[in-house]
């Protein structure tokens, strides 16, 4: 099993880059590493500290979404400039978050936790797999498929991170999660455009993106029963 200390070092390093704000990989990787740590807490059967990790991830979420939008190839120059200004304003909140004593305390607390024990690990993996399969089944029936796909993506991500800790490959899981991640980024872009001053100017492009998103989501839903079987074996 991989060791938490290594991930904590990575989180510190990514957070330092995120704090400077010049490289979007800092925020992205700090969030991703925090997600892996959340999976580690699940594997260890810990109830505490998960809310603190969630606080950190949520605090970085808007900056991450804006980074994805600013780096999208599809934006018109004026829209890109507007979102870049939004991202620059968000940076102040990133700095406040990472300078918060709660972040330092979280790192300090995590640094002392013992490695997960076998019985917790087995139970946690079974629970994560059950939840993932349930979330996928819910997506099949969902009236609001985008929300259901978002929930499934988070379940799959948690399971994949847990398997990463155990150094177990999960190629099907990884591919499904990547596909859902791309859908989420598309949806985030659409949502941000709708909330921006560019709604009218970009309507045609937005409709095309919305249609593409719906098509990809429908395709994923159709493939879920087959994926479900593969995930059980993965």
């Amino acid at each position: 099993m991989l060791h938490l200390a290594q991930r904590l070092d990575e989180l510190r390093a990514h957070a330092a880059i995120a704090r400077v704000g010049a490289d979007s990989r800092g925020v992205h990787r700090a969030r991703a590493t925090a997600g892996r740590i959340a999976a580690w807490l699940d594997l260890g059967g810990w109830s505490v500290l998960a809310d603190d990790v969630r606080w950190l991830r949520r605090g970085l979420a808007r900056a991450r979404d804006l980074d994805v939008i600013v780096e999208s190839a599809e934006l018109a120059p004026d829209a890109r400039a507007w979102f870049a200004r939004e991202r620059a304003a968000e940076q102040a909140r990133v700095v406040v978050l990472l300078d918060d004593e709660r972040f330092a305390a979280l790192l300090a607390a995590l640094a002392e936790l013992p490695e997960p024990r076998g019985k917790h690990v087995r139970r946690a993996l079974e629970r994560m797999q059950r939840r993932s399969l349930r979330a996928g089944d819910a997506l099949e029936r969902a009236v609001e498929p985008l929300d259901a796909a978002h929930r499934l993506r988070r379940r799959l991500r948690r399971l994949r991170h847990a398997l990463e800790w155990l150094e177990l490959p999960a190629p099907v899981l990884r591919a499904a999660q990547t596909e859902l991640g791309e859908l989420h980024d598309r949806a985030a872009l659409l949502g941000a455009l709708e909330r921006s001053p560019f709604e009218r100017a970009t309507r045609a492009g937005r409709d095309a993106r919305a249609n593409e998103l719906e098509g990809r989501l429908a395709s994923f839903r159709l493939r879920w029963p087959a994926l479900r079987g593969e995930l059980r074996r993965d």
Binding site: V48, E101, L113
Partner: peptide, 26 residues
């Protein structure tokens, strides 16, 4: 709870009584 392990472990046992938990260096 404090970030020191003995407080973290105690808080973990009491966590089912709580809606949310928070590490507090103070």
């Amino acid at each position: 709870h404090s970030p020191l392990l003995r407080a973290v472990e105690t808080a973990d046992v009491l966590a089912p009584l709580a809606s949310a938990t928070r590490v507090n260096a103070g």
